[in-house]
Design a protein around this nucleic acid. Structure first.
Length: 450
DNA sequence: CTGGGGATGGGGCCC
DNA sequence: AGGGCCCCATCCCCA
């Protein structure tokens, strides 16, 4: 006979003991703040702690101290509350950091919920059309109802695959079982985003294979790569294989876990944190690499860089080129594109590659594309037959959705300082452009680029 | 088939 | 935190 409430009460009691600092045998130091917890609870909830504590379990008489600088105390509070209650307090503000921390700590359930939370935010923003997946605080405040939730996936007696904690209730943020690859904000860029993802992962050298909880090995980060440990991962003989249903994890969830937290320690000890009873990690290592991508092994120093990096996973392209409609994930890429493709900024003859000036060359327009040709190449191209294409000079219509108040107008380039040279050929417009004013032109033509 | 160059995208980092 | 620049890798096109 099974009393279902027992599990709940047990966890409740543990949580109470934690609050009262009873029997706590593990201290976790997060940016100077000390958290007390029970090894058993941590061991059972986190693959990271599982490995950590199994290494230090020989000396059970002493309390274990672990130090983290990879996430904030507030974030760890959310994580620890989840460990002791099964409830995850997610908000738009903390979801990325919680997810990053969960990835660090190898808590697949938490990662899964965070992913779902983000996805639901994206779904909402898709409906709003003018909003994008944003990690900023204002994104939350704009819709406080939808972007804040508590995940209460329920207490379970044993660890389980991420989707097992999912709740089907669509009215809350407790959906689960979704993989990130199933979603893309821009349908048009979906294929592209997937390519980017695979490309990125290829570049990162990510291992696409099943991993075993608690036995994940370093492989993705070159600086800390340990072939020795990888070898061991490849031969499970040395490790007792956990039950299949417990350890076979979606690689998309698992892949991010491997990372710099595992060092070249000969016994597979986490290197980036204080593992032993007294030993604290050198904060130097972690302070240098602070933000870890929840989707891949990439680690960046700044939150803003992580935010930018995440776009390569989400496929978000908020910056459309108003000249050709092509979308970019970054403003500087759009800027670069616009300069090279539509403004003919390079003072190089496209044909002979020679340097040209306003005297020795001219700007040629071909559709929305502009480039420079030297006078010789212009003559060779049959400049006599080039005709002016006035339509191409008119401001073009571009998709306005989500253009981030972009106000580039291609036709603005046709200003008084640009002398149109009429010619008789097709599709080409020759302009006399003063190179010295290119810079000023740029500033004029892209007021949204501050 | 191959090498070169342009376009694009991602990361680091400065301002 | 965002903008922007630089550097580098990759892809693709073309000779």
């Amino acid at each position: 006979m099974e009393i279902s409430s027992h599990q709940f009460h047990l966890l409740q009691q543990l949580n109470e003991q934690r609050r009262q600092d009873l029997f706590c045998d593990c201290n976790i130091l997060v940016e100077g703040k000390v958290f007390k917890a029970h090894r058993n609870a941590l061991f059972a909830s986190s693959g990271y702690f599982k490995m950590l504590l199994s290494q230090s379990s020989k000396e059970t008489s002493q309390s274990t101290t672990a130090t983290f600088q990879a996430f904030s105390p507030d974030t760890f509070t959310v994580i620890l509350d989840f460990v002791y209650s099964g409830k995850l307090s997610l908000t738009g503000q903390n979801v990325i950091e919680v997810m990053s921390a969960a990835s660090y700590l190898q808590m697949t359930d938490v990662i899964s919920v965070c992913k779902t939370f983000i996805k639901s935010s994206l779904d909402i923003s898709e409906k709003e059309k003018d909003r994008y997946f944003s990690l900023s605080d204002k994104d939350v405040s704009s819709n406080g109802v939808a972007r804040s939730c508590v995940y209460g996936g329920g207490w379970r007696a044993e660890s389980s695959p991420p989707h097992s904690h999912s709740s089907p209730d669509p009215g809350t943020c407790m959906m689960g079982g979704n993989t990130w690859s199933n979603f893309n904000y821009y349908p048009a860029s979906q294929r592209n985003a997937q390519q980017q993802l695979s490309k990125h992962e290829q570049r990162q050298g990510s291992v696409k294979k099943s991993r075993h909880l608690g036995l994940q090995q370093p492989s993705d980060i070159p600086h800390y790569k340990s072939s020795k440990l990888e070898d061991r991962a490849a031969e499970p003989a040395g490790h007792p294989a956990p039950p299949e249903e417990q350890v076979h994890i979606d690689t998309e969830v698992e892949t991010p876990h491997v990372g710099y937290q595992y060092g070249q320690g000969s016994e597979g000890m986490p290197r980036g944190l204080a593992v032993s009873q007294q030993e604290h990690e050198s904060p130097h290592d972690l302070a240098r690499m602070r933000f870890k991508c929840p989707f891949c092994s990439h680690v960046v120093k700044r939150k803003a860089d992580l935010k930018r990096h995440l776009r390569c996973h989400t496929g978000e392209r908020p910056y459309p080129c108003e000249a050709c409609g092509k979308r970019f994930s970054r403003l500087d890429h759009l800027s670069s594109h616009f300069r090279t493709i539509h403004q003919a900024c390079k003072p190089i003859c496209r044909k002979c590659k020679r340097h040209v000036t306003e005297l020795t060359g001219q700007v040629v327009q071909e559709g929305t594309r502009r480039y420079r040709l030297c006078n010789e190449c212009l003559a060779e191209a049959g400049i006599d037959s080039i005709r002016i294409d006035l339509e191409a000079e008119a401001p073009l219509e571009f998709p306005q959705d989500g253009d981030k108040d972009s106000r580039w107008h291609y036709g603005e380039d046709n200003r008084s300082d640009v002398e149109i040279v009429e010619d008789g050929s097709t599709d080409l417009v020759i302009q006399q452009v003063d190179d010295s004013e290119d810079e000023a032109d740029e500033k004029d033509v892209k007021p949204n680029i501050r």
